[in-house]
Design a protein around this nucleic acid. Structure first.
Lengths: 192, 192
DNA sequence: TCAGTTTCGCTACCGCTGGTAGCGGAACTG
DNA sequence: CAGTTCCGCTACCAGCGGTAGCGAAACTGA
C-alpha cells in the first residue's frame, strides 16, 4: 500500500496486496462468526494466507482488527459547508459505517479486549481515535468532548446492536436515534 | 438462596452463601481487570473458592457473568405513577446500574461472547432480557420494541463507556444523554 | 542463466484460558 | 456414628493467541 516509488521497488518476493485480502477476510469472518469466533487461524484460512504471514504484519489480533476498522472507515467525508452540516454528516457517516457487516462486532470485540490490554489501548488510540479527532477538530474548532461524544454514542449503541446480529434482541429504529443525536449535538441540549 | 423450607433442609455440607461471595468477587475482578482479564481462576481466588465449585453452579463463564448481572440489577423499581414516569424512572435506573463498577464491562464482555455462543445467547435471553421485558410490558402495555429500545440505547452507550474505564476515551455528559433519551421515548420523537 | 534478496508457507511449539474428571475430606443430618 | 452432600485439590484436555526456524517461492539485477 505504501511503496516508496515504482522503480525503487526492492528485490525479493512481493506481497501482492495481501493487506486488502486479509482485511476483507477478517471482516467477513467476524461478521459470520463474531469477534470471539473469528480465530486467527480461521481468518488466515479465509484469506488463503499463513497465520505467520499475518503476524509478520500485525503484532496482535486486536491490532489487525483495529487496522481493519481504520481501512473500513476510510477518511472522514468533510462536506464543504457550515460546522453544523459537517457535524451532522459526520455522525451519519459513522452510523452508516458501523452498520456495515462485521464492523460493529469488530468494534465491540476490540473495545472489550482493550480494557485488559494496555498495548491494544495504545494502538486503538493512535490508529482510530486520534486521527478522526484531529481531523474533525481542525474543522469544527470545538472542544474535543463534543466530537468524541458522538463517536461514543453512535459506536456504543450500534456496536451493541450489531453484536447481537446472530439473535437480535431488538429491532430499534436506529435512524431515529441518529437524527436525535444529530439534533442534540448541533443545537446544543435544546430541542429541534 | 432458595431452600424449600427451614426444617426440610437436606443433610450434607451446606453451601454457606457461596453465591453472594462469588458474585461480589466476580464484579470486583471484572471492574479491576476487565472482562478478558477476569479469569475464572482469578475470580475463584478472589472469592476464596475452588474453581470447580463455581463450575458446579454455573455451566460457563458467560452464565456466571449473566447471573451476576441479574443479581446486580435486581428487580425493576416500578413507581406507582403514569406510564411516562415509569418509563423515565426505569431508564434512569438502568443507566445508574450500568454505571456501577464492573457492571458495564461485564455487560460488554457477555454480549461479545454471546455472538459466537448460542448457548450463552439463550441464557442471556432467558435470564436478563425476558424478565425485564415481561415486567415492563405488563405495566406499560406497549409494543416490546419501545421498552427494549431504551435498554439497547442506554446499555449500548454506557457499556462502551464503562468498557474504557481503564483509559477513558471520553468524558461525555451521559446524564444529558439519558435525559435526552427519556424525552425521546416518553414524548415520541418530538422535542421536550 | 544465475546469484542475491525478500517474503511466504509450513511445522512445531509455548503459555494461558475455559472447562472436566475424580478423589479424599469437611460439614452437616439423624 | 453411619449416611449424605458438598467442597477443595490435583491433574488433565482442547483450543486460542502468539513465536521460532527452516525451506522454498518470487522477485531483482547482471
Amino acid at each position: 500500500m505504501s511503496p516508496a516509488s515504482p522503480s525503487a521497488r526492492p528485490p525479493g518476493r512481493p506481497r501482492a496486496g495481501i493487506e486488502a485480502t486479509v482485511f476483507a477476510a477478517t471482516l467477513s469472518t467476524v461478521h459470520e462468526l463474531g469477534y470471539a469466533g473469528a480465530t486467527m487461524d480461521r481468518i488466515a484460512a479465509a484469506a488463503g494466507v499463513a497465520k505467520t504471514t499475518i503476524y509478520r504484519r500485525w503484532p496482535s489480533k486486536g491490532a489487525l482488527i483495529t487496522d481493519c476498522l481504520v481501512d473500513a472507515l476510510g477518511p472522514v467525508p468533510l462536506a464543504d459547508a457550515g460546522r453544523e452540516e459537517i457535524m451532522a454528516s459526520a455522525i451519519r457517516w459513522v452510523a452508516a459505517k458501523v452498520s456495515e457487516p462485521g464492523v460493529g462486532a469488530a468494534f465491540a470485540g476490540v473495545f472489550v479486549d482493550a480494557v485488559s490490554d494496555p498495548a491494544l489501548r495504545q494502538i486503538l488510540s493512535t490508529r482510530l481515535q486520534d486521527p478522526y479527532r484531529v481531523v474533525l477538530q481542525d474543522v469544527l474548532d470545538e472542544p474535543e468532548n463534543r466530537v468524541l461524544f458522538f463517536i461514543d454514542v453512535i459506536v456504543g449503541t450500534l456496536l451493541h446492536r450489531m453484536g447481537m446480529t446472530g439473535a437480535p434482541m431488538v429491532d430499534a429504529d436506529v435512524t431515529a436515534l441518529v437524527e436525535m443525536v444529530v439534533r442534540h449535538l448541533t443545537n446544543g441540549t435544546g430541542p429541534a
